[in-house]
C-alpha cells in the first residue's frame, strides 16, 4: 500500500527546545491514522512540518511522495487542515469566510459545502465574532472538508463540540475513509481515536514510541479477565511478572495481563476454572500502560 505521509529522522528544535526528534512515520493511503500524545509531545509540530508551516532542523517529510518543503503547494492542493489552535478572521460572516477560503483554494463543491453545514447545524449568516467556540470549530471543520481532500489533517477535531456533533464529526471521518481518502487524526481523546482509527502512533516527548493497529493494540497488549474458580486462590497465586491483581473476592479474581497468558491459565486450571469473563480494556488504559507513571500520562 502507498504511503500518503512519510517522515524519516524528522527533527525539529525551537532554539534549544525539543519539538520532535528522529520521527519515522508512515501513514498509508485510505487509512485513519491516530496520532496520540499528551500536550507538548510534538503532535502539532509534526502537522505543521507536513504543511511546510515549520521547517525541520533535520530529516525529511513527504506527503503523496512529494517533498513538503519543495512541493508544498502541490501537496496543499490535496490536503484539508484543521489546526488545533483554530483562530478565524473576525468581521465577516461564516458564509463569507467559507466562500473566501473556497475561492482562494479554487474549490468547486458548493453543494457539498452546504451539505456539511447542514449536517453540522451551522448558521452561516452570523458574523464569526458572534460564534461560540463550538461553532468556530464547526466552521473550521467545514473549511477543511469542503474540497474533498485526499488527505485530511485534523488536530483535536471534536474540541469544543457537544457530544452529538462529536458523533457526526466521527461519522464524517469514517465516510472519508470509506471513499478511499486518508485521515491523520491527532487527538488526546482516546475514546474517539479508538472509535475511528485503523492504526495509532503514540508520540512521547517528541519521539514516536509505538505504532500499532488499534485492534491489535487492544487485543494483544493488555488483557483483563475476571476468573471464577472452584477453590479460593492463595495469597501468592498469579504472582507473575506482567500480571496485576485488580480485585479479589473469595472464588473470583480480576487480573490485568501484559504477558503471555499460558502461566496464568496453568495456575487457574490448578484452582479449577468455573468461568472466564473478559473485560473491556480501553485504549486509554493501554496508553497509560505505555507511558507509565510519571512519564507525562498525567497530562492526558
Amino acid at each position: 500500500m502507498t504511503n500518503v505521509i512519510e517522515t524519516k529522522n524528522l527533527t525539529v528544535y525551537y532554539g534549544p527546545h525539543r519539538g520532535i526528534v528522529d520521527l519515522d512515520l508512515a501513514v498509508e493511503e485510505g487509512e485513519v491514522f491516530g496520532f496520540l500524545g499528551p500536550n507538548g509531545a510534538g503532535k502539532t509540530t509534526t502537522q505543521r512540518v507536513l504543511l511546510d508551516i515549520i521547517r525541520p532542523s533535520a530529516g525529511k517529510a513527504t506527503v503523496f511522495g512529494l517533498d513538503c518543503q519543495e512541493e508544498g503547494v502541490q501537496i496543499r492542493k490535496e490536503v484539508g487542515y484543521l489546526p488545533g489552535e483554530l483562530q478565524l478572521p473576525e468581521g465577516m460572516t461564516g458564509r463569507r469566510f467559507l466562500r473566501t477560503m473556497a475561492a482562494i483554494r479554487g474549490d468547486n463543491h458548493p453543494a457539498f459545502r452546504q451539505e456539511l453545514c447542514e449536517r453540522l447545524d451551522l448558521d452561516l449568516s452570523r458574523k464569526i465574532d458572534e460564534y461560540s467556540r463550538g461553532n468556530k470549530q464547526k466552521l473550521g471543520l467545514v473549511a477543511s472538508l469542503m474540497h474533498k481532500p485526499a488527505l485530511l489533517i485534523l488536530d483535536e477535531p471534536t474540541s469544543g463540540l457537544d457530544p452529538l456533533v462529536q458523533q457526526t464529526v466521527l461519522e464524517m471521518v469514517r465516510e472519508t475513509r470509506a471513499e478511499g481518502r486518508s485521515v491523520f487524526f491527532s487527538s488526546h481523546i482516546l475514546s474517539e481515536v479508538q472509535a475511528v482509527c485503523d492504526r495509532v502512533g503514540i508520540i512521547r516527548q517528541g519521539q514516536l514510541v509505538a505504532v500499532e493497529r488499534v485492534d491489535d493494540l487492544i487485543e494483544q497488549q493488555l488483557r483483563r479477565f475476571r476468573l471464577t474458580l472452584v477453590e479460593t486462590p492463595g495469597d501468592n497465586a498469579f504472582n507473575f511478572e506482567g500480571v496485576s491483581i485488580l480485585d479479589r473476592h473469595d472464588h473470583s479474581v480480576t487480573l490485568e495481563i501484559r504477558q503471555n497468558l499460558q502461566p496464568v491459565m496453568e495456575e487457574a486450571v490448578h484452582y479449577g476454572i468455573v468461568d472466564i469473563e473478559p473485560q473491556t480494556v480501553t485504549l486509554e488504559e493501554i496508553f497509560l500502560a505505555y507511558y507509565g507513571a510519571g512519564n507525562g500520562a498525567n497530562n492526558v
Binding site: R76, K77, Y81, M101, I104, R105
Partner: peptide, 9 residues
C-alpha cells in the same frame, strides 16, 4: 496558519 495551509506559495 489557515492561509498557509492553502495551496499558495
Amino acid at each position: 496558519e489557515l492561509i498557509l495551509s492553502q495551496p499558495l506559495a
